[in-house]
Amino acid sequence: MKILLIGEYSRLHNSLKEGLLSLGHDVTILGFNDGFKAYPVDFPLVKKWDSGLLKKVKLAVLQLTGFDLTSYFTYRQFCKNQAYFQGFDVVQLINENSFYCDYRYETKILNYLFRHNTKVFLLSCGDDYVHVNYNFNHPDNPSIVQPYLAGKIADKAFSNVLKFRTPSFKKLHHFIQEKCSGVIASDLDYHLPWQNQPKYLGLIPNPINLDKLDYIPMEIDDTIEIFHGINRESYFKKGNDFFEKALTIIQEKYPEKVTITVTENVPYAEYINRYNRSHIILDQLYGHDQGYNALEAMAKGKVVFTNASALFAKHYDLNERVAVNALSDVDYLVAELSALIENPEMIMAIGKNARTFIEREHHYKKIAEKYLNTWSK
């Protein structure tokens, strides 16, 4: 099968590609490489006029004329190589706005893909019209909408989420829904909003390439190593304010028992190795299911504070703890960290359970087979 994967978040499409290649399929990735994370893509797109003086000029032109220069330049980049983006059995969009263009140029690109390929699918693994509106309509559901409604995130910093509530993105949503072959969710946080939509095909868990992530049996000597990686752009979205407060208390409470490492905006290739010595990883709040950073750390046998709600445990029929469900409560986080520090055997057990869970539910070759079965139906 000839497959075109469009867009890259958190290495999802790269891991899926590796699984598909191992099964003998022809796979190409087109898209942006997700900023400083620098994920590899076969046909990279670059955002033009998106910083410095040129960005100011672009915004002035947009305000005066309504013309978005960045969208136009992305469209031009696509057109330059468009001959390579036809004749595929399957095209998968990572998002409703995979090319980050306005409605005019996004639909120009999508129309070409719909016309020149057999099937086009949408993957819900980030913000989209259905997901964002569901979370605004259900403010008690754990999601990144909660810190926004709490006033922690300004409208400007939340614009990449809020845009999906605008008329043009509602129009783009309906355009894609009319033409695509179906929608797949990557975890429970996207499954919940989409489950009653007419073209929804179901949840396929994130693929994790276990051949690239060695299980590291933990050894605990004198201190417990805690790792906290911060992406400054998503600081409040991930709940880092709660983690940092909890870590301050833990450092004072156990000065001789813990070593805490904090990094910011580290490229993926470096980040994935930074926490090899760590026992505990602080990932994120506000959700039911794990994202990519958590899953990869779990694959290495780490204890990860992340989204692991009761709904998640029920969905996967879990009787053992595979991660610590992180909540927006400093006292709760301190209590959970303290229990692990005072009972190192719990760290060993959860880390082992985490690796077993990833092998069972997220192995990249098994997940690639699930995609192939869903695409082929």
Rank of each mutant, 00 (worst) to 15 (best):
T306S: 15
I224F: 00
I249Q: 03
L30W: 14
N265V: 13
N353L: 01
E320G: 11
Y364L: 04
C125T: 02
A185N: 12
L327P: 03
L16S: 06
E219T: 11
I350P: 02
P147T: 14
Y105K: 05
F78H: 08
I250A: 01
S309I: 00
L93C: 09
T107K: 03
L30Y: 14
K58L: 09
K253E: 10
K253I: 09
I367W: 03
I153F: 13
K302F: 04
S15Q: 12
Y371F: 07
N137L: 06
I220Q: 10
K370F: 09
H13Q: 07
Y134P: 12
P217N: 05
H25G: 11
G301N: 10
P217Y: 07
N307W: 05
P205R: 00
A368Q: 00
K152I: 06
K377W: 01
E369M: 02
V262W: 03
N137Y: 04
Y292A: 01
K55Y: 02
L210M: 06
D155W: 14
L327R: 13
D26C: 10
I176H: 14
E342T: 03
L64N: 07
E264D: 07
E296T: 12
L123M: 13
V130G: 00
E225D: 15
N117F: 09
Y235I: 01
Y200R: 00
Y254Q: 14
A335E: 05
Y100S: 01
K171I: 01
N95G: 01
D214K: 04
S168F: 14
M1A: 12
E178I: 11
I144W: 04
Y39F: 14
D289Q: 08
Y215R: 02
F242G: 09
G229F: 02
H362Q: 07
T28W: 14
L59Y: 15
D317L: 08
T118L: 13
H174R: 07
C101P: 07
L201K: 02
Y75K: 11
F114P: 08
P193L: 02
F158T: 06
E296H: 13
D329S: 11
H228V: 10
F175A: 10
L340G: 13
A326I: 00
G87W: 07
V324R: 05
E106P: 11
Y129V: 04
Q197D: 05
L30V: 10
L247S: 06
S338K: 06
Y134S: 03
T306C: 14
I216W: 14
R355W: 00
I144H: 08
G24T: 00
Y371W: 02
E233Y: 12
I249D: 03
A299Q: 01
F158N: 12
I184C: 03
Y316E: 13
S159F: 15
R115M: 13
T374S: 11
H363F: 13
V330W: 11
A368D: 06
V330H: 09
H279R: 04
F67R: 13
A246I: 15
Y112T: 09
V120E: 01
E96H: 12
N111D: 10
N231C: 13
F312L: 11
Q284E: 15
N97Q: 14
G31T: 04
K17Q: 09
K171W: 10
K163S: 11
F305W: 05
F32W: 15
V91M: 05
Q77C: 02
L282H: 09
